[in-house]
């Protein structure tokens, strides 16, 4: 029980700017032969580095609700939101519509018309009208989901 709690604590941290690479002993004075693997040691994978192009503009958000469920984005999934990205047609975006956050795909039409597209048959697309207070808060660069936590019964 205790171990589990500790793990939750650690998982909850979200340092955007810290590089998480596997540490290795680099240099110092070593006796004996140098390791033959030393030439390859710089090759580590750093997910912070891979997934976050603009650290000062990147925020994490948690999905609530099911409006994007048909493309596999479910409640509890984690969004990597990059405010530095220019919103483009087809982007998944966190939008502000009349003071509320909403997660939708952007459909940019001729004449500066914007439609917000859900991925759920039970929801209707929203067309932005004049008088609406609308802006794109940030473009969702990645969606992170846990595959061990099964949400729907498949078989």
């Amino acid at each position: 029980m205790r171990v589990k709690q500790m793990r939750t604590l650690i998982l909850y941290k979200s340092h955007v700017s810290v590089r998480l690479a596997l540490p290795y002993a680099d240099g110092g004075v070593q006796a004996g032969f140098p390791s033959p693997a030393q030439d390859y040691l710089s090759e580590t994978i750093d997910l912070n580095h891979e997934l976050i192009e603009h650290p000062s503009a990147t925020f994490y958000a948690r999905v609530v609700g099911d409006s994007m469920i048909e493309e596999g984005i479910a409640e509890g999934d984690l969004l990597v939101v990059d405010r530095a990205l220019e919103p483009e047609h087809g982007d998944l975006a966190v939008c502000c519509l009349n003071g509320e956050f909403t997660l939708k795909r952007l459909r940019l039409l001729d004449g500066n018309r914007v439609m917000l597209m859900p991925s759920n048959r039970r929801y209707r697309p929203i067309e932005i009208c004049e008088g609406d207070d609308f802006r794109v808060w940030g473009v969702v660069a990645y969606t992170i989901k846990s595959n061990r936590r099964r949400r729907t019964r498949l078989w």
Binding site: Y12, K13, S14, F59, Y60, A61, E100, T102, L103
Partner: peptide
């Protein structure tokens, strides 16, 4: 703590 605690920033 929207920016430092995962899951505190929720989007519908």
């Amino acid at each position: 703590d929207y920016t430092t605690v995962l899951g505190s920033f929720e989007v519908c």
